[in-house]
Structures are given as C-alpha cells and as structure tokens.
C-alpha cells in the first residue's frame, strides 16, 4: 500500500516535470509568435490611433479600402511576377550549383566555403554593396559594360529594370543559400547508385534525370515552398535600394504593407495587408504542394 502510494506520488510529480521544461519556451512562442499571428486577423478589423492607444472597429473596412486602391492591384501584379520568376529561377540554379559543388575534385571545400559567404552576410550589407556596384554613373557593372562597348544601364533607377535588378541581387544570396539544402541531399544519395548507373551505360544527364531528381523531389518541394514564403515577405532590399520606386515598380506587397503602417500611419491597413499576404502565401504553397503531390502518382 505504502509502496503503491509512493509510486503514485512519483508518477504525478513526473507528470508535471515535462511541462515545467516546456513552460518558458512556450510562453515565448505563444506570446510572440502564435498570438500575434492570430491577433493580426483581429487588428486588421480596426483602425488604430497608436499615440492615443485607441482603436475603433471598422469591420472589413480596411480590406475594402485596400481593394479599392489601384496601388494595391499594381503591387499585387508586381508581386506575382516577382514570385513567378524568382522562385523557380532560384530553385533551379541552386540545384545546378549543388550538383557542381558536389563534384569530387580537389579543393572543392574551398569553393564551398566561398559560396557560403553570401549566405552569412546580411541582406542589408549585400544590398548596400550591390546598390553601389549597380550605380548608373560610377558603378562597377557599368564600368565593365562600357569596357565591352556596351551602353551603360540605369538598373535601379529605371522602372523597367529595377525589379529585375532586385531579383538578381537577392539571387546572389538565395541561390547559394538553397544550394546548401540540395548539397546535403545530394550527399545523402549513395555513391553506389551512380556507379551502377555508369556501369549500365548511363550518361551524366541520365543519372541526373533518373537518380538525382527523383531522390531529391522532397527537398525540391521544400526549397520551392520555403523560397516562395521567404520572397513574398522580402523587405530589406526594397527598403534600402528603391523604397518601392521608381514609379512604384518595386512596390512589393510586403513593402506596401510597411508603407501603409509606418509611412502613412494606417496600422489597421498594414495589418490587413499582412493578412492578404498571408492568404496569398498559403494559396501559393498549397498549389505548389499539390503540383508535387500529383506528379508523385
């Protein structure tokens, strides 16, 4: 009897211990990650007067206001073009770079270290350096173009080129970043598979197509989906380099959300924009997910 009781108390204190270990982390996660994500939906239904710490309910008013705004529709179009180009481009180039970095040649680890540099440097520093390199009047890129007898380009100053320039700059980071995921995946493929294929007379392309690609399918899906989410919420390069310009040509939705809240003081509109962006992200991810699922069958 006494023994059973001791067991019982021990078991019940045992039951508390895991929760004590979890408590601090979960208070943080709940307060700063989960609750604000949910609160975002509520805040989007109010107008806010932050200086007076007041808010008033406007229902779908913020959304109606956004949907009537031609700037929103322009930003939406820009964001979609941007996503449709950037994500497949970065995923494909990252995979190609991973195949290259997976070659067993002497000194490969040095090259891999070099490719890590854009990944560890902040996007702000990257944007700053590339902003100067792409300067119209005195940037290095135009210096090189001129040497080849080509006309100098306005890059970030032109409404036709700015978005593509930003895609280029962020790919300087994104391609090596996602490459690391593919490289880890490639290193997990047993070398014997490739050797067997080579004995059977498969060439490099065939073994890539029939061994590498199918075995990396899950990582490709992961990279494409994560890249989509990351790029939909891209902010720093736009803030640093163009502030949405010229002529709103780089006014991606994320930057527009910031601008509404922190330049125009419309926090409710800003929160509403974030919710719209979240819905777009969810839809895109779902579509990509289904695409990969359907191909698996």
């Amino acid at each position: 009897m006494a023994v059973r009781r001791a067991d019982h108390t021990r078991a019940s204190t045992m039951q508390w211990i895991p929760y004590l270990f979890l408590l601090p982390a979960f208070i943080l996660l709940f307060t700063f990650r989960i609750a604000p994500a949910l609160a975002g939906f509520r805040e989007a239904l109010y107008t806010h007067n932050l200086s007076a710490a007041r808010r008033s309910f406007v229902g779908w008013g913020n959304f109606a206001h956004i949907f009537r705004d031609p700037i929103f529709w322009k930003s939406l179009r820009i964001t979609l073009v941007f996503s449709l180009v950037t994500n497949p481009l970065q995923t494909a180039l990252a995979l190609a770079l991973a195949v290259l970095a997976n070659q067993r040649v002497r000194g490969i680890s040095i090259f891999r270290s070099v490719y890590l540099l854009p990944v560890v440097i902040s996007i702000n520093v990257t944007s700053t350096i590339w902003g100067l390199l792409l300067n119209k009047d005195s940037g290095m890129i135009n210096g090189i173009l001129i040497q080849f007898g080509l006309p100098r380009q306005p890059f970030l100053l032109s409404p036709d080129q700015a978005l593509w320039t930003i895609i280029g700059i962020i790919s300087w980071v994104g391609v090596p970043y996602w490459m690391m995921f593919f490289l880890a995946g490639l290193q997990g493929i047993p070398q014997a598979l490739f050797e067997a294929a080579a004995i059977d007379g498969a060439n490099a392309w065939q073994s890539f197509r029939y061994i590498t690609l199918p075995l990396l399918r899950r990582i490709i899906a992961f990279v494409l989906i994560s890249d989509t989410v990351v790029n939909l919420f891209l902010f720093a390069p736009v803030w640093i380099l163009t502030r949405g310009g010229p002529q709103l040509s780089t006014n991606l939705l994320m930057y527009d959300a910031y601008r509404r809240g922190f330049v125009w003081g419309d926090m409710g509109g800003s929160a509403a924009m974030m919710m719209i962006l979240l819905v777009i992200a969810a839809i895109t991810v779902a579509v990509e997910f289904l695409l990969f699922r359907s191909r698996e069958g």
């Binding site: 039951q15 211990i17 895991p18 929760y19 270990f21 979890l22 979960f26 996660l29 700063f32 990650r33 989960i34 604000p36 994500a37 609160a39 975002g40 805040e43 806010h48 932050l50 989410v229 990351v230 939909l232 919420f233 902010f235 994320m254 959300a257 910031y258 809240g261 926090m267 800003s270 929160a271 974030m274 962006l277 979240l278 992200a281």
Partner: peptide, 30 residues
C-alpha cells in the same frame, strides 16, 4: 519525456516554423 499533448505541442512548434516572422511583426508592433 512522454506526456499528454506532446504531439500537439510539438506540432505547434513545427507550425510556428512555417509562419514567417514578418507576419507577426506588425500585429506585435501594435
């Protein structure tokens, strides 16, 4: 440890991974 609700709580951890930090920042700022 094995405890009640472990899978749900771990699922929450994985879920917060998926929500990009930027989404929470504007509501959090408010």
């Amino acid at each position: 440890f094995d405890f009640r609700g472990k899978d749900v709580l771990f699922g929450l951890v994985l879920l917060t991974f998926m929500i990009p930090g930027e989404v929470t920042m504007i509501p959090l700022y408010i």
